[in-house]
């Protein structure tokens, strides 16, 4: 701390104002409208499910997490919220909590904590729940009754089956795939979110806004969602035009977990490729797999498996798309006669 004109410091000399903490909390901030919308559409059930899944993540991170179990970086919070947003509103709370615990423990902590995980922890939790409780996770009660009435048996006792006595309704995707009267839900309904589905599957508009905000702040790599959308649109458009599938491309884009997955899960900084070229490959893979799974798979929705599968390929994508250091000579140039 002298008054010398020349300032001597060790590198790095240019510091970004961003930090993990800042990024994470701004992601949470951008999720708030989506959360508010889910509570608006589904009532207190949505709030409870989100609370339970987030609690599961936070408790697990606190007990077993690295970095002395700190919750301050907000990553556990995001995982919990994202997991909650992929669940149906009438989901039993104990299952949501368990999903949070599992996703956190086996999706993240077991690999060494934040920055080390291969798979998106929220989706690991979701995949576990899908495999463990296939009935509960595909029960979407028909929206009925007052706003404040619960959307299902949220308060089923731990380890006990939920009692579903309300009428159930299929999601737009399930309806088109398994319904007898192939109804294509109008895109405007999907866009605004006045359809059934998981908490965060409904309003494409709000997720889009949140995503654009994050992309503007530079917290997410816009190449990934864009390449997912382009691929999904192109591939499903091709199949639709050829008459192979009954899914119109726009319907593909705005239904199910496409928006939430593309903006918030595929773009997870830890589990997506490093270079932009890699991101395009990654997004292409997800878009392609989603269309394939949705058309030919056994389940109506394929976003979760598409992202998890591509997560597994990220190390290979990174290796394949490693940028050439500046000034280095490529093999072709080397071989060329001088």
């Amino acid at each position: 701390m002298t008054d010398s004109i020349v300032k001597l410091t060790a590198s790095p000399h240019v510091r970004s104002d961003d930090s993990t903490v800042k990024i994470m909390w701004s992601v949470v901030l951008s999720l708030l409208p989506v959360i508010a919308a889910s509570i608006w559409f589904f009532g207190p059930s949505a709030f409870f499910v989100l609370l339970a899944s987030t609690a599961g993540c936070l408790v697990t991170e606190r007990l077993f997490g690295s970095h002395r179990g700190s919750l301050a970086d907000g990553s556990a919070m995001i995982t919990g919220l994202l997991l909650g947003l992929t669940l149906p509103p009438g989901f039993p709370l104990w299952m949501a909590f368990l999903g949070g615990v599992f996703g956190m423990a086996f999706g993240k902590i077991i690999f060494g904590g934040l920055g080390q995980n291969i798979f998106n922890p929220a989706l690991v939790g979701r995949a576990f729940l899908q495999a463990a409780f296939p009935v509960a996770i595909t029960t979407w009660p028909a929206k009925s009754g007052q706003w404040w009435s619960l959307q299902g048996d949220n308060f089923a006792l731990p380890f006990m089956s939920p009692v579903v006595d309300t009428a159930t309704a299929a999601t737009p995707l399930g309806h088109l795939k398994f319904g007898d009267d192939s109804v294509v839900t109008p895109v405007i309904d999907l866009f605004l979110g006045t359809t059934g589905g998981s908490l965060g599957e409904t309003s494409a508009l709000l997720i889009l806004l949140g995503g654009i905000y994050l992309a503007y702040r530079g917290h997410l790599n816009w190449h990934i969602p864009l390449s997912i959308f382009v691929t999904t649109f192109a591939v499903s458009g091709l199949f639709f035009a050829l008459g192979i599938s009954q899914f119109p491309p726009l319907f593909m884009l705005f239904s199910g977990g496409m928006m939430l997955g593309a903006f918030y899960m595929a773009t997870d900084m830890v589990t997506s490729p490093l270079s932009n070229k890699g991101c395009w490959l990654f997004g292409f893979g997800i878009g392609f797999l989603v269309v394939i799974i949705r058309i030919w798979g056994g389940l109506p929705e394929g976003m979760m498996y598409a992202i998890l599968l591509m997560n597994a390929l990220v190390p290979f994508i990174n290796r394949a798309t490693q940028p050439r250091p500046f000034g280095s000579v490529s093999k072709k140039q080397e071989e060329a006669p001088k």
């Binding site: 039993p92 299952m95 495999a131 463990a132 409780f133 006792l157 380890f159 006990m160 089956s161």
Partner: peptide, 16 residues
Amino acid sequence: VFGPNFEPWVIMVLPA
């Protein structure tokens, strides 16, 4: 063991 209302964890009897 857990009575008739127990919700089975289907994943446990699957290969995973």
